[in-house]
Amino acid sequence: MNVNAKLTEKIAFGFIGASIFTVVLFVCIILYYIISNGYPALSWEFFTSMPRNRMMEGGIYPALIGTISLIIGSMLAALPFGILAAVYLNEYAKPGKIKWVIEMAINNLAGTPSVVFGLFGLALFVRYFGFGPSVIAASLTLGILVLPIVIRSSQEALLAVPMEYRQASLALGVTRWQTTKSMVLPAALPGIVTGSILSIGRVAGETAPILFTGAAYFLPRVPNSIFDQFMALPYHLYVLATSGIDIEGTRHIQYGTALVLLLVVLGVNSIAILIRRHYKKKLRLN
């Protein structure tokens, strides 16, 4: 019986080992294909030149600028509201029904499919507000998409600020808002920045929400106002890979674009991790 139990354990652990190996293998294979095939396409010119010859040659400049505009626009929309919503939930809201409903809404918003956000952006921003397909409509849509991420990470950051700081500040005769503004938010800032940076990665990579809210198939210029349409990296990749004029012939541009997307997302995530590490030491949180 003992031998049996030992054997079962061996088999079970064998399966578990095989499965974690598979998962790691997935990561490696995906990274390997994108990096090894995309690397040769990267050059200074790739980043700074317009697509040429019906997108069969040239670079990704307008798509890069478009994605950067989306990042800026959506952050401007999501950060203030997300951070203040987290402040409300952590510093002001009493536990109870209202707080529960808000938390529930955040979870549901976080789980709502991105294509649904696209439909919503189309109905509300493009049509109802009359922005038309534009940078601003897409930015606001993406802003709503990442709002739950910003709220969640800001909440976590606020939670990491020790209760004693708040008590000490209140005991000095400082109001709750002043305590939040001068004590709690500065101490939570690195955590909040980390979370926001993670949401930048999300904004850069999302495609479905911008499909109907302003992404252009091809636009030989950068957007000249927030009410202009734009090209964006993920949509550009989608277009080249599925409906370009020469799908096979532009593989190198596709891999290059995929790699740029990957680098943006991974780069942004690594920066977030570094910031967190740096400030954790400095603030001695945890």
Binding site: Y165, Q167, S169, A171, L172, G173, V174, K282
Partner: peptide, 16 residues
């Protein structure tokens, strides 16, 4: 009131 009545806590809690 809290300006007038200060408090020092059990665990030293200087701000960061």
């Amino acid at each position: 009131l809290r300006k007038k009545v200060g408090m020092v806590f059990q665990k030293p809690n200087p701000f960061p």
